[in-house]
Amino acid sequence: MNLQRLISYFEQWDTSRSGQSPTLAFGDSGAYGRYGALMLSSSYQPLLDRNGQIIAYEALLRVQAPDGRYIPPDQLFTHLENNSEVVVLDRLCRVMHAVNYVSQEHDGKHLFLNVNGRHLQGIAHGSHGTTFEALLDYCGLKPEQVVLEILESSVDDLNQLQQAISAYKAKGFRIAIDDFGSRHSNFDRLWALEPDIVKLDRSLIVQAGQNQRAARVLPALVHLIQDLSATVVCEGIETGQQHQQVLDAGTDLVQGYHYARPAPLLAHNSARQPAALSA
């Protein structure tokens, strides 16, 4: 791992416009980030297959204010003035997650990393993933070990989104569409984007547990996505009832508090693995 090259990359950026500097630093507990007075850290939540085995981890951002309060991660990007600032800060978060992941025993499992929608809009056509591939190499990871999560509804320009996904895939990254079923998500865009993985929005799971019609639709939705050659993840599973319902619906992977809460240390065998997973 080339820590000095990683630090130097972020030191070069001039953020005088905002008056805040994205900084990568290292302490006893691993890598962390600074953006102004905010402290950025990593947590990880496992994804499990139908047999209850952990097959990947999603890295989640934690943003802490000076008074100790935790701020929703999306608020970190909301007030940034331009896309270039978003690009640098988004890369900082992903690099931090990668460093903390590699420093733990991960058994070669895939790492899911979120990409901000404004980051996609701030990168020149055809160059998506070029810089991040080099930064990953400093961390000791290859693109083939990483799944990039994209919130499809965060980018209105379908052509721009297609170009970004195509560039990422060409470099070996796998692509997951996050929160499918929320806001204006639709199958026309899903067919056009051809993702490797689709993560269903938690609201669909909640509705399926409360409404018989939604419960009947859920298996059809899962199978339709699988017919597109995409892996289906049902996330936000919090109860045994939800777990069994998505298992019966045919989901490929599951994720949520029912199995493990996000934590700085990888869950490994501490993830809850209900017997029903193997049903």
Rank of each mutant, 00 (worst) to 15 (best):
Q75P: 05
Q53K: 14
T78K: 12
Q53L: 13
N51K: 15
P73C: 05
V63Q: 03
F77M: 03
D67I: 08
A56G: 11
N51D: 15
L89K: 00
H79E: 06
I54Q: 04
N51L: 14
L89E: 00
L89N: 01
Y57A: 03
E58R: 15
F77Q: 02
T78V: 11
L76S: 01
Q64L: 02
I71L: 13
N82V: 11
P72M: 06
G52V: 14
L80K: 02
D90E: 08
Q64A: 05
G52A: 14
V88T: 03
A56V: 07
A56F: 10
S84D: 12
L76R: 01
P72V: 02
R50K: 13
I54L: 12
E85A: 02
V86T: 01
R69L: 09
V63Y: 00
V86K: 01
G52K: 14
D74N: 14
R50P: 07
H79S: 04
P72T: 05
Q75A: 08
L60D: 00
L60Y: 04
R69W: 07
H79W: 09
D90F: 02
H79Q: 10
I71T: 07
R62S: 03
L60F: 06
S84L: 13
S84Y: 12
E58Q: 15
N82W: 10
N82E: 12
R62L: 06
V87R: 04
Q53F: 12
N83P: 02
A59W: 04
I55Q: 12
P73F: 03
N83Q: 13
I54M: 13
Y57L: 10
I54D: 03
E81K: 13
L61D: 01
R62N: 07
H79C: 04
P73S: 06
R50V: 15
V63P: 00
I55D: 07
F77L: 05
H79D: 04
T78I: 10
N51Y: 13
R62T: 02
I55H: 11
R69M: 09
D74H: 15
V86Q: 01
E81Y: 11
I54R: 10
A56E: 02
V86A: 00
G68Q: 10
R69Y: 08
P66Q: 08
S84W: 10
I71N: 03
N51Q: 15
D90N: 14
S84E: 12
H79P: 00
I54C: 14
F77S: 00
E81W: 10
Y57K: 14
V86E: 01
A56Y: 03
F77W: 04
Q64H: 07
R50Q: 14
V88I: 15
E58C: 15
E85V: 03
L89V: 00
A59C: 12
L60W: 03
P73R: 06
I55W: 12
A65I: 05
Y57E: 05
Y70S: 10
L61C: 11
V87A: 03
R69T: 10
N51W: 12
T78Y: 08
D67C: 08
N51M: 13
N82H: 14
N83H: 10
S84V: 11
T78F: 08
